[in-house]
Amino acid sequence: MEALDIISYFLLLGLLLAAVKVVTTSNVIHAAISLVFTLALTAGTFLLLSAEFVALVIVLVYIGAVIVLFLFGIMITRAPLGQNAELDNEKNKGLALGVSLSIFGIFSYVMLNTFDSQINTTSGTSTELLGEILLSRFVFPFEVVSFVLLAALIGGITLARQDNALMDENQI
């Protein structure tokens, strides 16, 4: 029980440090790589909470696909690679720090005063059960989400493609 506590403290501390690195580093590629570390430590936390399927989905979808998309976006917008002092809006820093610290204070006050129960470590969950629930009780939201994903796919292609092909059709 105590070993689990120590492991969870290390995971959460590393998570927060990597997240701070994401928003403070002055190198765009380092920010994306730090996000990989944040997500990997999140997956570790999910494994600790016996949510192994969600941890694998995080690794596959986020670390596998979304980060590649981000690196693609960084390179295609020709963000200056390497150190870049212009990345932060200096005059917003004090305000941003105040807002985020007050949000953190309010959230942690509410959370600490509302929830003090223990995590149920006696019963685990299984991927088999998750799949059965996802395709029986939650099958309608599942289909709606897949439709949203299809719409996003088509919308992304429509937004990002050059209009040359349309012009060619008009000329014919």
Binding site: L12, N92, S100, I103, F107, M111, L112, S117
Partner: peptide, 21 residues
């Protein structure tokens, strides 16, 4: 559950800071 909830609140506020700055 408390360390996890505090860490999630911290992650949220770090994200807010990043959006603003």
């Amino acid at each position: 559950v408390q360390p996890f909830l505090i860490a999630a609140a911290g992650l949220f506020s770090i994200g807010i800071y990043g959006i603003l700055v």
